[in-house]
Amino acid sequence: MTSTSTPPGLARFNDLDEPEAFAALHETCASTAWVRRLLVARPYATSTDLYAASDAAMAELITADLEEAMAGHPPIGRPKPGDPASAREQRGMAGASAELKAEMLELNLAYQEKFGHVFLICATGGTGEQMRDAVRERIGNAPEREREIVRTELGKINRIRLARLVEEDARA
């Protein structure tokens, strides 16, 4: 059991059995290596400890792990059907014009052709125009540079999702 001073949502997460905790973390990030690193470090005393463990795990991911994590993300402008997290995170594209959506589709395809994976950005709070401008800018990056940007963006997404997991757990 976790300490009574641990926030309730985090305590609940800490107390999940391993398969449940694995599933919750895997919904946060599709990288099995990332999930395993966070599982082994449980229990967490504070949310800050959880976020630090996430950041450390993200820094250690090799290319194959990053590819596995990216495979869990749909292209910008096309959230996963039935996935509220995906729809919530891509809300900035929901009201985009047909022209912007078409341009984003073209840019996504060009990006994927160049880098071999979806364009990944922490889209929470971003507008469709900001996402378009980011893909336009980043498509010119060298693959090594883009991989590190993707790692940073995944880290941001993971922190947001972990915070939501712990907050939702607190309300459960």
Results as ranks from 00 to 15, higher is better:
V35N: 04
K101H: 09
T63R: 15
R42C: 01
A23L: 04
A110C: 10
S54C: 09
L25F: 15
D55A: 14
L39R: 06
P79M: 08
P81H: 10
E113K: 15
A45E: 13
E68D: 12
R37Y: 00
T28M: 10
A45V: 06
R88L: 09
A45P: 02
E60M: 14
P81D: 15
E89G: 06
L25P: 12
C29E: 10
D49Q: 15
R42Y: 01
L107A: 05
M70W: 09
C29R: 10
L105C: 06
A85P: 00
I62H: 15
L107P: 00
W34H: 12
H26L: 11
E129A: 08
A134V: 01
A85F: 04
A59I: 01
E89W: 01
M70V: 15
V40P: 00
D83P: 00
V40I: 08
M104P: 00
E27Q: 13
R42D: 05
D83Q: 02
A98R: 06
M131Y: 12
W34D: 03
R36D: 10
L109C: 03
T28F: 04
A53Y: 07
E20M: 12
E89F: 04
A52G: 03
G92E: 08
V35D: 11
L109T: 08
A69R: 10
T127K: 00
M70D: 01
L109P: 01
D55N: 09
Y111D: 01
T28D: 10
V35S: 06
A123M: 10
M104N: 00
A53T: 11
M104I: 09
R136M: 04
